[in-house]
């Protein structure tokens, strides 16, 4: 097997502790560019395109966040202890990385970080299991009598991310069904958790749950921001929180 391709990276800033920025699903390195630019004077900011996004080719089909973390460790200089900042899906990778490689990370920051299951109402759970059953039936019927029901099912019920995922579909499915409870409990480094109060994709309840599981976590909820505009309108508020957090990290 040939060695996997390196990830495309943009670097902003030339001195200071390296900050590794991991974007969310559907973005590329530019997704975190607005915030990272605010750290230009004080950090070396490495903004990656995650596999399958921007200029980085896909890893193997079905690659998980854990595989991404392994690859990221290979890509980072051996003597470097990184600070990882992940938005949404990028947050999953940061949690995996911090749990698996505690001596290669000095702190992590999750902005609207995903990775834990949300509390769902009973009616939501019933609806979801009913839909899953229809999906399985559609696939079964496709296999046995060569219908095309599964595609119609996806078009009708699939999320936008799922529909757009293309060859990354297996990776997406493994991510949304994954549960990082055990990994979160293994994160030993300090963690900053920033969540927008109006985020419906990664609501503050996920951040609060992370804060309970992790050993050294600080949770902050920012009023008036959702999953995406927290990276734009909320850039300065994130800047303030991250800077005051980094001040307290001895080797950052």
């Amino acid at each position: 097997m040939k060695s996997p391709a390196p990830w495309h990276v943009e670097t902003i800033g030339s001195t200071g502790t390296p900050l590794v920025w991991l974007h969310g699903w559907g973005y590329d390195h530019k997704g975190l560019g607005r915030i990272a630019a605010l750290f230009e004077a004080r950090n070396i900011n490495q903004l990656y395109d995650l596999p399958g996004f921007g200029q980085t080719p896909m890893m193997h089909e079905g690659a998980s966040t854990s595989d991404y973390a392994d690859r990221l460790v290979e890509l980072s200089p051996k003597d470097q202890k990184s600070v990882l900042i992940g938005h949404s899906y990028g947050g999953r990778i940061a949690v995996q990385y911090a749990a698996k490689y505690p001596d290669r990370v000095s702190a992590i920051v999750l902005i609207a970080g995903a990775g834990l299951q949300r509390k769902r109402s009973l009616s939501f759970k019933i609806k979801a299991s009913y839909l899953r059953m229809i999906g399985r039936l559609a696939r079964l019927s496709d296999r046995i009598v060569k219908t095309n029901l599964r595609e119609a099912y996806t078009a009708r019920f699939g999320s936008a991310d799922y529909k757009n995922a293309g060859p990354l579909r297996a990776t997406l499915v493994s991510a949304v069904t994954e549960n990082l409870t055990a990994e979160a409990a293994n994160v030993k480094c300090p963690v900053l958790l920033i969540y927008g109060a109006e985020d419906t994709d990664a609501p503050p309840e996920i951040g609060k749950h992370y804060a309970k599981l992790m050993q050294k976590a600080r949770f902050v909820e920012l009023a008036g921001y959702d999953h995406h505009d927290i990276l734009q309108r909320g850039a300065y508020q994130c800047e303030a929180l991250i800077k005051s957090f980094l001040k307290e990290i001895p080797d950052a």
Binding site: V220, L222, R233, G234, Y236, Q237, A240, L241, S244
Partner: peptide
């Protein structure tokens, strides 16, 4: 408002 330091 958006550029206010939320820690202060």
């Amino acid at each position: 408002l958006e550029a206010l330091d939320p820690t202060k």
